[in-house]
Write a protein that binds this DNA or RNA. Structure first.
Lengths: 258, 258
DNA sequence: AGGAGTTTGTGAACGTGGGAACAAACCGAG
DNA sequence: CTCGGTTTGTTCCCACGTTCACAAACTCCT
């Protein structure tokens, strides 16, 4: 789902890089997306004082099957012990290192409306490898207000934050019409990873990653399946034929059956 | 990503159902996930007064390539005109009907904390085929408070809402420790689709769909790629060897080289 | 030490998804 | 009516992701 031009370790050349270590390159995107889930499951196990777990146990905690879990972990290296399982602390560290959350990443949030407030107050940020470096908003009426220990700064400060604090990740929580302009400005300032909450498709240059979180898309996907479930039981087609737009053209010219 | 046991229209039997229409069954999950994006792009085009568009134009607006767009739309039927393109209003209605958002779905939100407030005030709900039927919270101190025109009700009211108002979709915005219990109660009450904002893996029975929105997972995926980008330039490994947990066991028993 | 039991890591088979390329179909001009 | 230009719908092929199944490797018990 990451809008990257090309994968990094594309397996186009099997014979290149004879020194290529297993964990060096080429972790599949689907696996990358699950590593944070495994990490969270390991943290939970660790908090419960569990020192060792099998792939079956960890897979259950993460909501996947054990074969997938083992294959995913095999891309990182051989961190388990056959006949025993995985050491929770050790595996937790290895995954955290692979993801890159052994130290905190500074993050800026742009657009402190309803959602931005909620994000600024979200405690899960700081606990899992991220730190809110600043809250930005273009509206002068909001600037200066303190939200969750941080003041809202002018959006103009973005270049300064990137240059002086090494911020690389930006969160866009603005209304949809402003998102693309904000995105362009973030990219120009040097931001290379963007998490977009605005319901818009963002266009970014090569080398910038965008991930989107979209409430209404998720709901619509659920609605599709829900409709299917209902249709299987009721066999009632809820489509209103009255408001159906007519098919344009399509005169079909009755060419067959001649 | 939907945690459904089995796909509905699994293509296990090509010869069954001779009356199987094209749009009847078997739209790939990846396509379903993109239909809402196409729908939004069409709404935008419609608002601009554009009556017709080519697959290339619509694909650009949706952030995909035209081949993928055409293939996706072909699963729904032949709604375009060769040599011309797609009628915006007509295609918009067809996609909306396929997704099931031609009329509104009632939705309940459980857990009206920071995030729940933001969701309750989110205007994109009502505009795109969904209607907030109720806000629920288990905390009596929050009950009665009015958020975005709706009062917060006791969580106990969930059965009543499902039975009397036909609510089928639930949004979980509670803290993580409460999420599974809330989920179980929703499922028991008859909810069959759940959108989970709590950072936990939810276990649900067959036939219930769960989709999750997880901020910290998205950020960690971005961090992984960000780390890779930095590594390609700097070749600095930021891993601190001091705090590395020791590999347990792995005595290796030096059996080879004998 | 040796064997039984357990669990990881991985090779192979299978299904799904993405993209190029092309035939079919439509429009408009002459 | 015919021809050239345009755009869709579909087919084919390849890459990716998932799952099965099993050898390798480890522990424990005798």
């Amino acid at each position: 789902m990451t809008s990257r031009g090309k994968r990094f370790g594309a397996p186009h050349d099997g014979a290149s890089r004879p020194t290529a270590d297993k964990s060096e390159r080429g972790i599949p995107e689907a696996t990358v997306a699950r590593l944070p889930v495994y990490l969270r499951a390991l943290v939970t196990l660790s908090d419960r004082g569990i020192a060792t777990c099998s792939s079956e146990e960890l897979a259950t905690a993460a909501g996947v099957n054990s074969a997938k879990l083992r294959k995913d972990l095999s891309y990182l290296g051989s961190y388990g012990t056959r006949g025993v399982g995985y050491d929770v602390e050790y595996l937790r560290y290895q995954i955290a290192r692979e993801i890159g959350v052994t130290q905190d990443w500074p993050v800026v949030i742009v657009g402190i409306g309803n959602l931005g407030h909620a994000l600024a107050n979200y405690s899960g940020f700081s606990s899992r490898g991220f730190r809110i470096a600043a809250l930005l908003d273009a509206d002068p009426g909001r600037q200066g207000e303190v939200v969750g220990d941080l003041p809202i700064l002018a959006f103009d400060r973005i270049e300064e934050l990137v240059a002086e604090h090494g911020v690389a990740i930006g969160v866009i929580a603005t209304p949809a019409p402003a998102a693309q302009a904000v995105c362009d400005r973030l990219v120009a300032a040097g931001i290379t990873s963007i998490l977009n909450f605005a319901p818009t498709v963002l266009a970014v240059p090569e080398g910038v990653d965008v991930r989107k979180v979209d409430l209404s898309i998720e709901l619509q996907i659920l609605a599709y399946h829900e409709q299917r479930k209902a249709g299987l039981l009721d066999r009632i087609d809820p489509g209103l034929p009255d408001t159906t737009p007519a098919m344009p053209g399509k005169t079909t010219t009755a060419k067959a059956v001649g």
